[in-house]
Amino acid sequence: MHKYILRRLLLLIPVMLGVSFIVFTMMYFTPGDPARIMLGESAPEADVQKLRDDLGLNDPFFIQYGRYVKNAVVNQDMGRSYITKRPVFDEIAARFPNTLKLASMGVLIAVVIGVPIGIISATRQYSLFDNISMVVALIGVSMPNFWQGLLLIILFSINLAWLPSSGFDTWKHMILPAVTLGTSSAAIITRMTRSSMLEVVRQDYIRTARAKGQKESVVINQHALKNALIPVITVIGLQFGYLLGGAVLTESIFGISGVGRLMVDSIKSRDMLVVQGGVLFIAVTFSIVNLGVDILYSFVDPRIKSQYK
């Protein structure tokens, strides 16, 4: 198992190199000169050229990329933001805690809502409960986050004035954004749990369990659920990894300073080193979450554990 984890972590190195190369290339060939965007439409061309020299933007592509990789590997330095002049690592580190809190609360809410409803829907397929929860889940999947967020603000911040509408200082600030994120993920998790459970409850061993007179709750919780959980964990992991990359719309609406907004702002202003650092960071967190999910599999299903050698 340890060897497996170590191997997976080592695999991160080529992933990071690949990701950094792709992002660097994409940003390099994206139209729009970072220096011109930074200085605005009113700056004289001479100033723009001067800034390009200062930032090293006039160097050929491979020299720029080589310099970046060398700095990152040798000096563990991802550079400084073109715009704020803050170290890229600090920029990301300052915002990641918010994103992590938001993503964790969102996923927690999603799991607490999604998994039980999915199980019940599956065990009572085509019942009223099942139909209604599937409709609600469909609405949850389809409803855009920014719209749901605004509705929640109007109800809870303006009309009822129970919760603050933006900021991210206390637990009260976190409720609305976490619910906004959580409900849409919950919908996906509900549907996945239901379909996965439906597949499992039709298996022979479930019939056997019932035939030998096992209580229904034991049949569902012990026999069926464990086997149905693998795809559900996969989806939860994917959702979590995705949310760790930043939920741009939710962050904007609730005025949360997170990784998502940082990325969008940096892309717009062609703050290449921040984009580069940010994408790398997201790639790494995603890979680590994936690894975590793979490890979780082994706890749920011992058969998988035996493969992790």
């Binding site: 605004l150 509408s165 933006s166 900021g167 904007s252 005025g255 907004r261």
Partner: peptide, 18 residues
């Protein structure tokens, strides 16, 4: 001085006293 990039949010914050 707060950064409230969403225009609607900024107005709502004014309304709610944020």
């Amino acid at each position: 001085i707060r950064n409230l990039s969403d225009n609607t949010t900024r107005t709502i914050e004014l309304e709610s006293g944020g």
